[in-house]
Design a binder for these strands. Structure first.
Lengths: 102, 102
DNA sequence: TGTATTTTTGACAAAATTTTCAAGACAAAA
DNA sequence: TTTTGTCTTGAAAATTTTGTCAAAAATACA
């Protein structure tokens, strides 16, 4: 069983919809080789593609954003021994600064 | 009351120890202007400085790493509406992949 | 098999980020 | 106000990251 990434998720969506790279890349307004690399985690996706993906595949945009962000977070702490502690501290800080509705 | 950042934390340590930028920068093997920028959150610190800071100021390295990482995480989700959800998903995924002692 | 279509690759270009240098600003002391 | 030491600034250099092009490789399928 393989860990799903944002890239592999896009690939799955695309393939399920029988859409070639060429076409999705056109929608996303990027080179198809860039999309190929994103799907294979060789390049990191930009957030600009999220609303487009949401429209093209009719996926809830919030779900996409959460997937996208959590992958970015995980990228920062991969292989870090104290990643979990860091996540918890981040959560605390994030909640707190939100509560002060900055 | 001001939110403490990794940068302002370094500055505090440095000033409490009456150490000039010049000197700490030398220890860290970076330009003093780079350190100045790091302390003022104008640049992001690299992780290489962590063990050195730990030695110079005798701070537990784990605490430093957690501070450093959580700031990196927060940087990714700042101003994001769904940051908290993303953090929780990340936590789940991180715990899970760790449990499979990859 | 051959041909069309799709995907991947790798070198290069472009863009974004970071570091350094050198000068200027600032502060304390006298 | 000059001297001395510290810190900040901003432009340029260096590095890192990302995107593109063109061709090769893989896949589909007639």
């Amino acid at each position: 069983m393989e860990q799903e990434t944002f890239g592999s998720y896009i690939r799955k969506l695309r393939e399920d919809n029988k859409m070639p790279l060429r076409k999705l890349a056109a929608y996303l307004d990027i080179d198809q080789s860039t999309l190929s690399k994103i799907e294979r985690n060789e390049r990191r996706p930009t957030k600009e593609i999220i609303p487009i993906l949401s429209k093209v595949f009719k996926i809830d945009i919030k779900d996409l954003k959460v997937k996208y962000l959590s992958e970015k977070i995980l990228y920062e702490i991969q292989d870090e021994k104290h990643g979990l502690d860091a996540l918890k501290v981040a959560e605390q800080t994030f909640s707190y600064s939100k509560s002060r509705k900055k």
